[in-house]
Amino acid sequence: MAHAAGIALGLIFGLDADLLRIVRLSLSVSLSAVFLASALGMPLGAALAVYSFRCRGTLIIVFNALMGLPPVVVGLAVYLLLSHSGPLGALGLLFTPGAMVTAQAILVAPIVIALTQRAVSDPWNAYGDALLVDGASRLRAIPVLLAMSGAGLLTAFLAGFGRAIAEVGAIIIVGGNIAGVTRTMTTAIVLETSKGDLPLALGLGMILIALSIAVSACAFYLARRGAHP
């Protein structure tokens, strides 16, 4: 354990070029996936809270259940879609970071949708009538409600990011763990474990956890600044 911590510190302070590339790819893939999932999922989640229609209850249950989507299954499905023998093969996305973003966005979207729906429900129940009396349509109420649910959305964002940065099952299938192209923190940890270099694998794991803490801290800092400009 101490040996692993020493390796982790050595890698960080040695500014290892391979490590930097891996860290940058991990962050850009997972952040892109979460932003993509948020851009689609937050309005959708809010709509799910605001509109009432027949299958609404069922949909909410389904999205909550899909929060536990198995990454390997998503990876396999995206692989078959993007494969040259599959329907989207012509895009040439397989074994690229784009494929990894796609897979992670699919994994993260249900989390963002379900948590946003819950976050928006409270202000909707409290102020919904007032918003509608003021003449706003439900559609116009959505951005207002989203703006009121900052803390809940932050939770949705961070839960989604945590899921994306930590998973390996999907990206190792659609990315292929290619050195210098699609190797991320988690796939590198799998590789080093396979090689039996357990201290290095554990050291990388420690760096990954530190990264997650840093992203979470940044998000809280931004959110607080947003709340008190």
Partner: peptide, 21 residues
């Protein structure tokens, strides 16, 4: 909040799309 998210989204996509081309 939403606007900031959209800005960040655009940035993140640029960051990943850049080197792949």
């Amino acid at each position: 909040m939403t606007r900031r998210i959209l800005c960040l989204l655009a940035l993140a996509l640029l960051a990943t799309a850049g080197p792949a081309r």
